[in-house]
Amino acid sequence: MKPKVGVFSFTSCEGCQLTILNLEDEMLDLLGAIEIVNFREAIDERGHEYDVAFVEGSITTPEEAEEVREIRERTKILVALGACATLGGINAIKNRHDLHQVRRKVYGDGAHHFPTEATQRVRDVVPVEYEMHGCPISKREFLQVTKTLLLGRVPRPSPHAVCTECKTAGNVCLFDKGICCLGPITRAGCGAICPTYGGDCVACRGLVDEPNLASMIEIMKSKGMSRQEVEDRLTQFNTLEPVDLEPHFSS
C-alpha cells in the first residue's frame, strides 16, 4: 500500500507547495510511489490518517496552532516545509515589534477582526521529524527527503555550509565581487542556488549547527556594514535565533 501523504499550509506565501507542484518531470514517478490524500492547492478530498504530513508556513494564530496539533495526531511523520515553518522566516520579523502596532499597521481600523500572535516555528508547537529549510524549499531536497522517508528512515540535515556547495559548483565567490554573503554560516542543501546566479545568500535555510557568528559579524563589519545592516541581514529569516551584537559594536 502506498504511503498516504498530506500537504498542509499555514501562514506563508505557499511557494513551497508550488515547488512541489512544479516537479513536472518527477511528478508521475512521485505519484507512483505515494498517495497524496490532502493537498490544499491540488485536490479537495480530505484523508484522515497520514504516513507523512508536509507542513508549510508558520504558526501565527491560535487556530493554526490547534490545526497543526491535529495534523500531528493524525500523522506518523511530520516534515516542516520551508523557512516559514522551520525558522519563522519573514513572518517572524513582526516579533521584533509590538504586535498591537503591527496589527494596526497591517489591518488599520479592522485590526480587531484579525487576531494574531507572535510567529512560531512548527517545532515550537508540535514535535517535528524533519525540517526542510529554504525559501522556497529545493526540489532536489524534497525528492531526496521523500525517498528517504519512503525507505523508512528519517534523513539528516546537511552538516555543511552553503559555501561547500558553492565551491563544489566552481562559483566565483561573492566576497571576491565585494558582496557580503551569508553562505559561510548557512546550512547547505539548496545547491547554493542564489550565489550560483549571483545573489548573496540570505540564510533562508537557517544557520549551520555551530555557526561562528562572532567571526562572521567581524567580517560583515570589515565590509563596512553598520550595526543595523548586520542585524537586518542576520535576522531577515532568523529573528527567532537572536544574535548579540553588543560585543561587536560597543565602542
Partner: peptide, 13 residues
C-alpha cells in the same frame, strides 16, 4: 579557530 567559519573552502579548493 576563532576566525574559522568551518565553511570548508580551504579544503575544497
Amino acid at each position: 579557530g576563532r576566525r574559522c567559519l568551518s565553511c570548508e573552502t580551504c579544503t575544497n579548493v
